[in-house]
Amino acid sequence: MPDPIHQFDIHRIVPLNIGGWDVSFTNASLYMLLAVVLTIGFFTVATRARALVPSRLQSVAEISYEFVADMLRSSIGKEGMKYFPFVFSLFIFIFATNMLGMIPGAFTVASHIIVTATLAGLVFLSVLVIGFAKNGLHFLKLFVPSGVPVFVLPLVTLIEVISFLSRPVSHSVRLFANMLAGHITLKVFGGFVVMLLGSGSFAALAPIPLAATIALTALEFLVSFLQAYVFTMLTCMYLNDALHPGH
């Protein structure tokens, strides 16, 4: 049976070492760069005409813009648009790398915990910096919900702090685990097809895992988009906490 974990291996394409640090250009780097190049290339081509009546490509660019902008506006409000480039970059980066990962044989960037943890950590730090910069110590009100009886307040505050600190964990693991599990499942079912085909009369059963693989592929496309959406949506909600810490 083919190794379902093999697809997540990192290969050095251009080994680099700067000051003792391994900064090799790997297959992960390649797909990250590819996502950036494709995204920027797409937006360049799509908005070349800047037409009042958009072409199909321009419509797609505008829809993606409005999609993220609406998320920000609905969860934070007009002032949230200040963080639009950051939130949009997060969404399009995760979306593009996830979609590239759907190409058979391609590498899925978000299937590595370090990538999702870095992005989630970036959001977490942004929330902390923005929260204290905008509200000063009032940001700590986030942990002290109003309208809670005094005798349970310490407990509630403790829970709030723990839940706040666990945010980057759940934020990163959700994306990482979804992409990892989805791609392993795909590989396993694909492997079944190959195994059955190579096992004599059992080859007749091969269409069953093949059908499952096809269905899972469709599901995986959905998950690829949905996880980018969920990650972005949570980012918006966390940023909202930074701007409006009073519940």
């Binding site: 680099l16 640090w21 900064v23 990250m32 760069l33 950036v36 480039p85 980066f93 370090i114 870095t118």
Partner: peptide
Amino acid sequence: VPQLVWLALTFGLLYVLL
């Protein structure tokens, strides 16, 4: 380390260009 470095580079580039 290489993933972090390249994530920072590519994501930073994407952010700036966008």
